[in-house]
Design a protein around this nucleic acid. Sequence first.
DNA 1: GTCTATAGCTGGATAGAC
DNA 2: GTCTATCCAGCTATAGAC
Lengths: 203, 203
Amino acid sequence: MTRTTDRRSSILSGAAELFARQGVASSTVRQIADRVGMLSGSLYHHFPSKDAMVVEILTGYLDNLLARYRSVLGEGLSPRARLERLVHASLTEAELFPHATLVYQNELTYLRSGETVRSHPGFEGVRAAAAEVQQTWMDVIEAGRADGSFRTDIDARVFYRFLRDSVWLAVHWHRPDGGPGIDRLAGDCVSLFLDGFATFDEA
Amino acid sequence: MTRTTDRRSSILSGAAELFARQGVASSTVRQIADRVGMLSGSLYHHFPSKDAMVVEILTGYLDNLLARYRSVLGEGLSPRARLERLVHASLTEAELFPHATLVYQNELTYLRSGETVRSHPGFEGVRAAAAEVQQTWMDVIEAGRADGSFRTDIDARVFYRFLRDSVWLAVHWHRPDGGPGIDRLAGDCVSLFLDGFATFDEA
DNA sequence: GTCTATAGCTGGATAGAC
DNA sequence: GTCTATCCAGCTATAGAC
């Protein structure tokens, strides 16, 4: 167990912060090196390429997130409760890794653009993990539609996108310290969406 | 009045499509030239730089959008009705200029990142227009909070962001032909958000 | 494990022929 | 108005000294 954060980790977190703020394409290895106080060439002792950093940032983030999701799925909850736990898990992860969350959110559009750029081995894994994340959400939404607790007159994928983007967006404004905790935030978010989306037994 | 779409416009629309799919930074002037069947050097007869294309795409989009917004503001509607008309205007604009809409949505994060990259003259105008768009939404939300029709226990900016991203996101999945029209879509969207967000006189 | 130095490439942009 | 030909800057990545 090393006492101080090792070099490799600090490079990765510096890179994540840059990627989050400027985008991957506009961030250079020299900027990354500057940030940790070394020269660009030295980075390649730790990572084979810039893309490898991106892959590692996204993979670490998604692996953690999926582990949380799987734990939630094992609890055998109702659709509504499960949805709240998924929101909670996502917000928790976003609080722990805000930069990785932003990178994932911002680059997702370009990541899935089929035949283009990213052919780097490892991006396939990222894409697969991203697909599993989406499937997890779709499953709970479909389950809620099936048991009558969610509306069926609005496309499931549309609802998924609305909710997903709102949750992921929280990292833009949520402040870990001082503000409302994750618990409160997750509850508010689910209430906001579901009380306008879940079927109401009015009258 | 020219009968065919002129060269300049086709360059711009080709560029917009590329920017939307790959991101501005990852799109090269050579790709843009390829798409309209000319060589990269020839582009510079029509535009002084790649950034100038980005500025013109975003400016044209935002100018149109703001013109619609101002027209809505002149109708003297209630907050709820005004909100629906703003959603409607945004969706209409997104249907007419889907690529520009996506570019705006995707690059907004990097656009506002203060001292970084984009110092091109003209980007200031884009930023100013984007600020006016945001202000228009914030005004109607605040008006609704003031007259009691919207909840005050959730941050206005949070609600704004949820709604804005959901509306802008529609361009990802909405198909102009065949699917539900803009009218229906706008109504659904507002109903979805407000019936979970507007105050209810229950009991 | 970091540095110096630079190779090799790609991208935005330009000059001038046609 | 388009093409040919290219400049130059900036980038990723590498090789080898220390």
